[in-house]
């Protein structure tokens, strides 16, 4: 398997003592070259923390992260494979673009991390203009400031900034969540086209399952720091294996008839203890067996989940 990124037993903790929060627990993931990999979960599930560990903004507390089989983190130091190889697009283009910089300065800024020869080669006016046109902006926009643009246009600027260094891997952290539906569709389609043209690999982080399904080949579902299910997006969203994935899917309001029958959390139960499944207290199909946490196991080729049962139903 041609894995680009691999996470092995990755932990991330913030704070200490009473304030200790474990944001990511025992995460195992592999992202293949050329795919769009989705990471879905609710607020606080740890999905953005994983994105930040890949780009170098947070270091893992334990575990290994490799990029093309070379460790990304070494003794708390981020070892970039090559400056600009991994880039990110954030959710809110309002706060991720410096309001005092011109569009040109914003887009070429990542080049400062590159060796001077490469910087010159990648920073030519012709290359800049063609990139700008490709993301749907015009040459005359180069001298303007972010406030002169709409939300969708600002996100196009952020995409151009991420692409100027010719990355192979992009972390997209809720890139369209702040946009209107009609504009979201423009940006999603642009990202799809760019992925094909430039042979990019995406980690697409979102709370919106419909967007993930539209964009991604494979997807991982996170709940309170745990990865509870990983599998191929389409079949998994039709017949989710983990009860939490099922609840997540049935909660998303749909214009059409729901594809997954409605179901909700169970009334919170007493904590099952330290060994219990992470979803024990809210799981609608919990059993005594769940007091012992299930292993994260492969159920079908390329489809794994952390549940004792298949399809959340009580037969083993």
């Amino acid at each position: 398997m041609d894995d680009m990124i691999r996470l092995q037993q990755v932990h991330k903790q913030f704070g200490k003592g009473k304030q200790l929060v474990t944001a990511v627990k025992e995460a195992d993931l592999a992202i293949r070259r050329g795919e769009a990999f989705g990471l879905v979960g609710e607020s606080g599930s740890g999905k953005s923390t994983i994105g930040k560990m890949l780009i170098g903004l947070e270091s893992p507390t334990a575990g290994a992260i490799t990029y093309l089989d070379r460790p990304l983190w070494d003794k708390g130091q981020y070892r970039s494979p090559r400056p600009g190889e991994i880039q990110i697009v954030f959710q809110d283009p309002q706060s991720s673009l410096d309001p005092r910089m011109t569009v040109k300065d914003i887009i070429v800024e990542p080049l400062h991390a590159l060796p001077s020869a490469e910087r010159k080669e990648k920073g030519t006016q012709a290359r800049l203009v063609s990139l700008l046109r490709r993301v749907g902006l015009k040459e005359e926009h180069l001298s303007r400031h972010p406030h002169e643009f709409s939300g969708g246009q600002r996100q196009r600027i952020a995409i151009a900034r991420a692409l100027i260094t010719d990355p192979s891997f992009l972390v997209l952290d809720e890139p369209t969540s702040a946009l209107d539906v009609s504009v979201q569709a423009q940006v999603l389609n642009l990202l799809k086209e760019l992925q094909k043209e430039r042979n990019l690999t995406y980690l697409f982080i979102s709370h919106n399952m419909a967007v993930i399904r539209y964009m991604c080949d494979r997807v991982a579902v996170m709940y309170k720091g745990h990865i509870v299910e990983v599998g191929p997006a389409r079949p998994m969203f039709r017949e989710p294996d983990h009860p939490y994935t099922r609840i997540l899917l049935s909660s998303l309001p749909s214009v059409y008839e729901p594809s997954v029958p409605a179901g909700g959390f169970a009334e919170p139960a007493a904590d099952g203890g330290a060994n219990a499944c992470s979803f024990y207290s809210r799981c609608p199909s919990r059993q005594n067996a769940c007091l012992q946490a299930p292993a994260f196991a492969e159920k079908e080729t390329g489809w794994s989940s952390a549940c004792h049962f298949r399809g959340g139903r009580a037969h083993v």
Binding site: S182, N208, R213, L249, L252, E257
Partner: peptide, 10 residues
């Protein structure tokens, strides 16, 4: 608007 909306059941 409906054509621009990603929907799970679509």
């Amino acid at each position: 608007l409906l054509h621009a909306l990603p929907d799970l059941a679509d």
